[in-house]
Design a protein around this nucleic acid. Structure first.
Lengths: 259, 259
DNA sequence: CCAAAAGTGTTGCGGGTACACCCATGG
DNA sequence: CCATGGGTGTACCCGCAACACTTTTGG
């Protein structure tokens, strides 16, 4: 959605290209500075923050749609994406909208009463894990601004997006014990303290160093690179990286991580 | 969908009452004769079996829609229902359909080329656990026949319904360890051997009697009724029933069942 | 030499698994 | 009294949690 022409075409004829009534919203998690971050989008004209989202093209698979929407916002195509829930029950999702308006540039654009965008939407929630440092945030005609927000400082969001986020987070935390994470959240090479800190941040609890390393290494998902990381006036921790063969097997077959 | 008038109205104007492009399909599990059963529907005119399903009304919540669809087929409203996945990626779900026809009674009805029913549909999968003996199967203008099929003898189904069923089953088996089941699958009063057999059937493996009873009783979800069940020429097993207060708490908060 | 962080091994306890004997019932 | 299934207790073992000392580094 780069030009004003595209934008107006979308408002007027979007229902020819996209499936109406159905959207995808993404809870995009990143990790930085020992904080778990969520990507929030400020919608033009709506004067509020929400999760990034979009419509599904008429002939597109759901996974492609979710990947596309994410790529539009973050420029990433290497990420972990998972469908976690469909939202169609809340007050907001049961009724049609009215008087929606958008403000591309500085022009306020009020949607006509019978616009396809006023119809009720049911939203498929996906969550994504992405590598913070690789993300290149990109706004467009709908999204005025994108920011990474600490998961503990999320404001009141538009629509039912707070509920979505809370579902996403709960789901992600449960999945943590059954699928490997980290490949999409950490730099290529990382230390044990770093990955431990990632788990601690996501789970919001302290873990025992010795037990954590034993358990993680037993899974054999990461391997010693024989390099170390200089961290100044302290002992240099070893650098590890994921064994992609085993990591992908683990993604497929699941793991049991008892931390 | 009881009368022919309703039926034709649905074919022609359904998109005024229902959200197009989006359906709900239900994997309905029942338990009988030590077999896990799945409810299959024979669709008129399509000459094949599939999972029961339906459309969502324009102003209806998803859960209401799923409950309604189930009630139409089974007359039940007391059941466990869980959303497990959205299907929109398979070959079948990416393209529009063509030449759909239905055969209510003995009249073949070929849908017009531009019918709303020819559009691509994305389907939300729900699975349900129901008490076999309470079910009253009800056919209609679309469903010619409904049968309970042993889970191990499911034929090739229409569309992507085999894939759906396999997802539902996997999901249900995983959930087994985290949410209580049985209330919707067993008669009101049941014996320990009966509920053990239920778990064995669903998980498709033998469990140790002594350990099973210890673990289950420790959860305190079931209580002794002080009655016994006569089973003929053998010792009469005790009858238990669910403690609904604790059962509902467990539904909300989850359990850890290590069997 | 010191402060701060990383690396590593051992022990004890609890829970899960494996296992066997007695009891009730009806024929 | 016998065949069949139901009910129950114990011992062992493994795995998790708890825990402390040594090593490295740069200032």
């Amino acid at each position: 959605m780069k030009t004003e022409k595209e934008f107006h075409d979308f408002l007027e004829n979007g229902d020819k290209y996209y499936i109406p009534n159905l959207t995808i919203d993404c809870a995009i998690f990143g990790y930085h500075g020992k904080e778990l971050k969520i990507l929030l989008a400020k919608w033009r004209g709506l004067d509020g923050w929400g999760l990034p989202g979009g419509f599904i093209k008429k002939k597109e698979t759901l996974s492609n749609a979710a990947t596309r929407i994410l790529k539009e916002k973050t420029s990433l195509d290497k990420l972990y994406l998972k469908q976690f829930h469909v939202f169609g029950d809340s007050e907001f999702r049961r009724k049609e909208k009215e008087g929606l308006s958008f403000s591309p540039g500085n022009n306020r654009y009020l949607l006509p009463k019978n616009s396809w965008l006023h119809e009720r939407t049911i939203s498929i929630g996906y969550y994504a894990l992405v590598e913070y440092s690789q993300v290149n945030l990109m706004t467009d005609y709908f999204i005025e601004e994108l920011v990474w927000q600490d998961i503990n400082q999320v404001p009141k969001l538009l629509f039912d997006h707070n509920e979505m986020l809370s579902y996403a987070l709960r789901n992600m935390r449960i999945n943590l014990y059954h699928i490997p994470i980290g490949y999409n959240l950490l730099p290529n090479k990382f230390t044990l303290p770093e990955i431990q800190s990632l788990y601690e941040t996501i789970l919001d609890k302290k873990l025992d160093r010795r037990n954590f390393s034993k358990k993680l290494l037993k899974l054999e998902l990461i391997k010693d690179t024989k390099e170390v990381k200089k961290i100044g006036q302290h002992r240099s921790p070893k650098l590890y990286q994921f064994d992609m063969k085993k990591y992908n097997e683990a993604l497929k077959n699941g793991i049991v991580l008892a931390i």
